[in-house]
């Protein structure tokens, strides 16, 4: 049986791992390779690196650290950050990343997803979606969320975009529920369940993990394939080995 994945997310800025609360006020958490190795040793199933300033600054991800990570890490990792062409994606994949994740550039030009899937196969192509519920109760997509001064709310509905992204060739979707991000009150189960109902590729929950029960809820109540978290792992509030033993006891299939 396929295991549910525990995925620490490392936000990268200027070559270091940082963490913000509700996408603002970033503090440095540590060096990229050190944290990557620590999570590998603790039993993380996969790592995601977001170069959070790449897209707002109009540049692609820095390949130097991708290669440094690839040399030492023997679990899969995904890289995101301003990848806006097949050539940029190829460079990141050749540097050793297993998957690339696109967010803002795919919103600007959805054909990018088709092009990436055609060049590398859908299994390499992750689409990240930053979603927030507006006052009218609709979930909508937000863009350039790495930089609060540039973040934009789009008219596009989250679920509509998710359908389109899959049609274009997304092999996996990371749904980042911005309303719950960084505040540790649990994943947005209602939104994840709505997403699960229309998502036929692997779905990763992101935003809101604060306790071990939150992971169990996301797997058991929203049937997500993986759960992504940052601050609870960086701070040591939740240790991955303990989390996985807890999930196994609760009947969630995990890799111990």
């Amino acid at each position: 049986m396929l295991s549910r994945r525990i995925i620490p997310c490392l936000d990268v800025r200027d070559g270091q791992v940082v963490k913000g609360v509700r996408f603002r006020d970033h503090v440095v958490m540590g060096e990229i390779v050190d944290l990557a190795l620590r999570y590998r040793d603790e039993g993380a199933d996969e790592l995601v690196f977001y170069d959070i300033t790449a897209s707002p600054q109009g540049r692609s991800v820095d390949r130097g650290w991708v290669e440094r990570v690839a040399r030492v890490i023997d679990i899969p990792f995904c890289v995101a950050g301003g990848i806006r062409s097949v050539e940029e994606a190829r460079a990141v994949l050749h540097a050793g990343a297993d998957k690339i994740s696109v967010n803002s550039p795919a919103l600007e030009r959805p054909e990018l997803i088709d092009e990436l899937a055609g060049a590398f196969g859908v299994q390499c192509v992750v689409v990240g979606i930053d979603s927030l519920r507006d006052a009218d109760g609709q979930w909508r997509v937000h863009q350039y969320t790495g930089d609060p001064d540039k973040t934009q709310a789009l008219a596009r509905g989250t679920l509509d975009w998710m359908v389109e992204a899959q049609r274009c060739g997304a092999g996996e979707i990371v749904l980042n529920c911005m309303g719950s991000d960084g505040v540790r009150q649990g994943y947005d189960l209602e939104q994840l369940r709505a997403a699960r109902a229309i998502c036929h590729v692997p779905l990763i929950a992101s935003g809101g993990a604060g306790a071990m029960e939150h992971f169990r809820e996301a797997f058991q109540s929203a049937d997500v394939d993986g759960a992504l978290a940052a601050s609870v792992f960086h701070s040591g509030a939740i240790a991955i080995p303990e989390l996985k033993r807890y999930l196994a006891r609760e009947g969630v299939a995990v890799r111990l």
Binding site: M1, L2, S3, R4, R5, D45, E46, I75, P76, V122, Q123, G171, E172, C199, H200, V201, P202, L203, D225, G226, R255
Partner: peptide, 29 residues
């Protein structure tokens, strides 16, 4: 959900030197 993406257990069906030292239930990506 396709693609099959993630860690899954390997089950040996016959003895082969490629599987030396592989314990029951061990997973691969």
């Amino acid at each position: 959900r396709v693609p099959h993406m993630g860690w899954n257990a390997l089950a040996s069906v016959r003895t082969h030197p490629l599987l030396d030292g592989l314990a029951a239930g061990e997973q691969a990506y």
